[in-house]
């Protein structure tokens, strides 16, 4: 609060004078006036803060926070969701193959001659397969952790978006990220987001077609 505000000081002095002089009819309007002045000063300070925030957001190198909020946070969330999906699919592939293997093993064990000759090896093999089966529980555990992180990231994105908009930015006007040639050279990893699938080939067959065009 600005203690040097002359209007506030003057109104306060008038109020003291009115109280001392017992000018009761002036007391209520002066208190109202004081309240108005104080509210005005809070609004001024808030608008200064908002203006500072707007400038600070603009002055960050490459509008970092704006770009991060609009592009990187949703990108991170989408990537984490794809991780859940990849883990889920991988786990199901393993489980399907395990079920097939266990059925094959049962066939072997149901043959009396084979069971008699290789009983302990077959039992050991079943134990190994069962251990692989239990190990697939990682999918549930990692999935729960990832869901939690996605929730936190989304909440953070919403809060930052509200902050940016309240600082007077046009959210829709914030540009999207473009990959630089240096980033492509370093490698950008699996193209698991919608944005990253642009210019990406879907599968080995498409890659092979391109390679054979290039004589490889």
């Amino acid at each position: 609060m600005n203690q040097q505000d002359p209007a506030l000081l003057e109104a306060a002095q008038q109020l003291v004078w009115a109280l001392q002089a017992q000018q009761t009819e002036q007391i209520a309007p002066l208190i109202d006036r004081l309240n108005q002045l104080q509210e005005g000063s809070i609004y001024t300070q808030l608008s200064t803060l908002a203006q500072n925030l707007h400038q600070t957001l603009d002055e960050l190198p490459d509008n970092t926070l704006l770009l991060q909020t609009k592009n990187d946070l949703p990108d991170a969330t989408e990537r984490l969701q794809s991780v859940i999906q990849i883990l889920d699919e991988a786990s199901h592939t393993t489980l399907t193959r395990l079920e097939n293997s266990m059925a094959l093993l049962s066939q072997l064990q149901s043959s009396p001659e084979i069971a008699a000759a290789h009983s302990s090896v077959l039992q050991d093999l079943r134990k190994e397969l069962e251990a692989i089966l239990s190990a697939q529980a990682y999918q549930d555990l990692t999935g729960q952790v990832l869901n939690r992180v996605i929730y936190v990231l989304s909440a953070l994105e919403q809060s930052l978006m509200a902050l940016i908009i309240s600082a007077g930015h046009d959210y829709a006007a914030i540009p999207s990220r473009q990959l630089t040639p240096e980033q492509l050279k370093q490698g950008v990893g699996p193209n698991v987001t919608q944005a990253s699938r642009q210019d990406a080939l879907d599968n080995q067959a498409d890659v092979d077609d391109l390679l054979s065009e290039l004589g490889i």
Binding site: L184, G187, P190, N191, D199, A200, L201, L210
Partner: peptide, 9 residues
């Protein structure tokens, strides 16, 4: 995992 056309080129 890199599968952009420009990277394969």
């Amino acid at each position: 995992a890199e599968a952009k056309r420009s990277q394969i080129l």
